[in-house]
């Protein structure tokens, strides 16, 4: 014990330096997010004049009002909500059923399916978008909610299956069987016992699917080329380009960015712990 205290004393000056470094690191990493919000609260005139202001001077929500009421934001928001909702619902349903299959049953082809899921999960959108563009053209689904959602579900399902199967496997069958002994039907036992225990897993998977669909840019750029079907990321890109034709109104661009980023930041805080562990250790074990 005394040895530890002695070390602590000796290490103190070094620790102070490290603390300063830590604060600097925190400032640097948070700065872009802070800058986005701070700039969004100032008028373009104020942002253009003189040296940058490091805190919002005369803050107002005018930029948000102009973006919201600008006529193009709301259709893009609706589009994003539709695509995201469809993706989340289908992903959860499909992945849930598949995870039941691979964690509750042993069957021929099970290992191949898991292997396929893991490999597919790594396929880059950048290596597939030409073919997906062509596919959507053939199916007459270019520029449609259904078309882009099909691709998103395909992209998200593999990781979601992988994530959910850990949850399903973690609920002991014995619990379910105990419920059946107590007089529940097999389906009833599943609904009353297993399903509630899976709720956290379903929430985490749903948020993951939401984040992917809400943020996706590459495939959307290829499959949604018409102006009236743009999702929010495409809309923001267009908004900057239109703005750049004159002189970019950074106040409005930052307000638009904040509107897009805010739900993501909120949802992200729910799910990120699970995502790290799933990616790094495959900690979802069955």
């Amino acid at each position: 014990m005394t040895a530890t205290t002695a070390t602590k004393h000796r290490a103190r000056p070094g620790r102070a330096v490290l603390t300063v470094v830590a604060v600097l690191v925190a400032l640097v990493w948070a700065f872009p997010v802070y800058w986005m919000i701070s700039s969004s609260l100032m008028s373009n005139v104020r942002l253009s004049a003189g040296a940058p202001k490091f805190w919002p001077v005369n803050p107002s929500f005018d930029n948000y009002a102009s973006v919201w009421g600008g006529g193009t934001f709301l259709p893009a928001l609706r589009m994003s909500l539709a695509v995201t909702a469809l993706t989340v619902v289908c992903t959860l349903l499909f992945a849930f059923l598949a995870s039941l299959a691979i964690s509750r049953f042993r069957f021929r082809g099970r290992t191949s399916f898991i292997l396929a899921v893991l490999v597919i999960q790594m396929l880059p959108a950048e290596g597939l978008f030409i073919a997906q563009y062509r596919l959507m053209g053939t199916l007459h689904l270019l520029n449609t909610v259904v078309g882009i959602s099909i691709i998103y579900v395909g992209m998200v399902v593999p990781f979601t299956v992988w994530m959910l199967r850990g949850f399903v496997a973690g609920v002991p069958l014995e619990l379910e069987e105990a419920g059946m002994v107590d007089g529940l039907s097999r389906f009833g036992a599943f609904l009353r016992i297993t399903f509630p225990l899976l709720a956290p897993g379903l929430v985490a998977s749903g948020v993951y699917a939401f984040l992917q669909a809400w943020n996706e840019f590459t495939t959307a750029l290829v499959v949604l080329q018409a102006d009236n079907v743009r999702t929010l990321p495409l809309w923001l890109r267009g908004f900057i380009q239109t703005s750049a034709a004159r002189d970019i109104d950074w106040g409005q661009v930052m307000a638009a960015s904040t509107l897009i980023a805010l739900p993501v930041i909120v949802f992200f805080l729910f799910v990120q712990g699970r995502m790290t562990s799933g990616l790094v250790s495959g900690a979802v074990k069955g």
Binding site: V25, W29, A30, V33, L236, S257, I260, A261, V264
Partner: peptide
Amino acid sequence: SMLLAWAMPVITAMAVWRW
């Protein structure tokens, strides 16, 4: 602050960095 940076969608991060 790491979480904030991590949570930023690519498209908005790009807008901010461009600014």
